[in-house]
Design a protein around this nucleic acid. Structure first.
Length: 511
DNA sequence: CTATCGCTAAACAAAT
DNA sequence: AATTTGTTTAGCGATA
């Protein structure tokens, strides 16, 4: 059931589009001066009649986000009872007033401190957040999101710590008066959060102390997802500009509700080239491919036959080592392998071939599609976030320090802060050309996915088997079929959320 | 009640 | 030597 937003509908229909758009453009430009956001906004031309001549967000990845009913709490939203709670109507009216005044500041929940200093209170959840205006409210973004936005907003998609500080200070004046501990938190987050990766400096390159930090391409969708789930995330306001239709109510009233994209919506969610030049370029190449096509389902059903009924399998994922606590650290216990069951040799070969072809598509999608189907925060951007690639990475490879990461995971060489600006994951994309799906040898020999597997497995035969098993799980999950070998980053249906598999999912994998 | 998450503080080492 | 950067541990409150 899709829950529309009755309040926002009323708000947006009562006022003209033009005034709303103009005010939002003004507000966002002021909120994010000089940023990619304001650049994207500057590309919009609003006529006197309020028409947006060029709307860079018309195909935004957030343009068709809808809120799906996810839990019993949503029932509250289907009734109008929630309207009566608190001073919501007053707050909403206050939220509409984007012009700053002392009075509206009070109504907007601003916390005016007598000493004019730092407040630890979070921004009120029922007020649209303006970082430039609500300078005394703690931003409703996690440090992960702040760092993500800072890095994404940089020309090279990589920043030294110092400039991350600067970006945050510039865009969130709240931190100008905050104690310096937040810098520690930023560094702590950079260090501990797997989503962020240090870029090795080139020889002779000097950017001062420390390294550049970038987004790990594998986790970028997770961060996007996390940002999307954040109330008042800037891109949502952009979405309102592009598509002033009823939006998820939580973005207005601040209730914590995850967004879920439907399969149909997925295909239309192309990021703005103004905001995500590399991502939009990548997706444009594969936009003609549907996310879950018939062949996926076909292959998945074949896999069900091959693997047997998912429900008949033991709940524990045999390939995931369960976690144990040793000296306070989470480590993996040893596992006992579970051999796959196949039919005749001929049938096995046929299905394997089919599997490999489908696996190639899955691999390609996993590395190129930005949208993540998750409802658990742990799948977004936290220290415990997992990705398909991480499932098969050895989390505690001996000697896998920062210098060996690139080699082991085939990251491209560091570009340097002021270098050509080629995004690191562009090179990864090139490893997944459609033509690779046409040849078994190529498939097995050139993909990162396969390389990871081979590094993990001791023999080619074992690697091939691992390949098939992994692809089987990926396809089954993409087809919405619950399996014991869940690929946790995608296609997790609400009914899977309590599956025993997830409890076996690694909850903390250190870098 | 428990586990997880995000934040904060702190200690410490390494780099500049 | 001082400062900045990076890593790690610990603890707390909020939340699911």
């Amino acid at each position: 059931m899709v829950v529309m937003a009755p309040m926002q509908t009323a708000v947006q229909c009562d006022e003209s589009d033009q005034s709303m758009r103009q005010r939002l453009v003004h507000s966002l430009s002021a909120s994010f001066p000089g940023s990619a956001l304001s650049k994207a906004l500057s590309c919009m031309e609003i006529t006197d009649e309020g028409e947006v001549i060029e709307d860079p967000l018309s195909s935004s990845c957030f343009a068709e986000i809808r809120l799906e009913k996810l839990d019993s709490d949503d029932d509250d939203l289907t009734s109008l009872d929630w309207l009566k709670s608190g001073d919501l109507l007053k707050d909403l009216r206050a939220g509409e007033e984007l012009e700053t005044s002392d009075e509206t500041q009070k109504e907007n929940g601003e916390i005016k401190l007598e000493n004019g200093g730092y407040a630890t209170s979070a921004h009120p959840p029922n007020i649209p957040y303006n970082p430039q205006k609500h300078v005394n409210s703690k931003p409703p973004y996690s440090f992960s999101c702040l760092i993500f936005m800072a890095i994404e907003d940089s020309p090279q998609k990589r920043l030294p710590v110092k400039e991350i500080y600067a970006w945050i200070l510039n865009h969130f004046p709240y931190f100008q008066n905050a104690p310096t501990g937040w810098r520690n938190s930023v560094r702590h987050n950079l260090s501990l959060n797997k989503c962020f990766r240090k870029v090795d400096k080139e020889r002779g390159q000097s950017i001062g102390k420390g390294s550049l930090w970038c987004i790990d391409p594998d986790y970028r969708p997770n961060l996007l997802q996390a940002l999307r789930k954040t109330p008042y995330h800037p891109y949502h306001q952009m979405q309102m500009l592009a598509n002033p239709q009823p939006s998820p109510i939580y973005n207005l009233v601040g209730a914590r509700r995850p967004l879920t994209l439907t399969t149909q919506q997925f295909n239309h969610n192309t990021p703005s080239p103004h905001l995500f030049p590399f991502l939009s370029k990548r997706l444009a190449q594969s936009s003609s491919k549907s996310f879950t096509d018939v062949s996926d389902i076909d292959a998945a059903s074949a896999l069900v036959q091959m693997k047997g009924s998912p429900n008949s399998r033991p709940s524990r994922n045999p390939r995931l080592k369960p976690l144990a606590l040793v000296n306070g650290k989470r480590v993996r216990r040893s596992r006992s392998p579970s051999p796959p069951e196949f039919g005749s040799a001929r049938e096995k070969r046929r299905l394997k071939r089919k599997m490999e072809l489908q696996l190639a598509h899955v691999q390609k999608r996993l590395l190129t599609e930005p949208i993540v189907y998750t409802e658990s925060p742990s799948e977004d951007h936290t220290y415990s976030a997992t990705s398909p690639l991480h499932l098969i990475r050895s989390p505690t490879s001996p000697g896998s320090g920062s210098s060996s990461i690139d080699e082991e995971y085939d990251f491209g060489p560091a570009d340097g802060y002021q270098s050509d600006g080629v995004d690191s994951f562009v090179s990864e994309e090139s490893n997944f050309d459609e033509s690779e799906c046409e040849d078994d040898n190529t498939l097995n020999d050139s993909g990162n996915f396969s390389r990871f597997i081979r590094k993990k497995c001791s023999s080619p035969a074992e690697a091939a088997e691992e390949d098939v098993k992994l692809g089987a799980d990926a396809l089954l999950n993409l087809a919405g079929i619950n399996t014991s070998n869940v690929v946790p980053i995608r296609a997790i249906s609400p009914s899977d959320s309590n599956s025993p598999v997830q409890s076996d999912t690694p909850s903390l994998i250190k870098k």
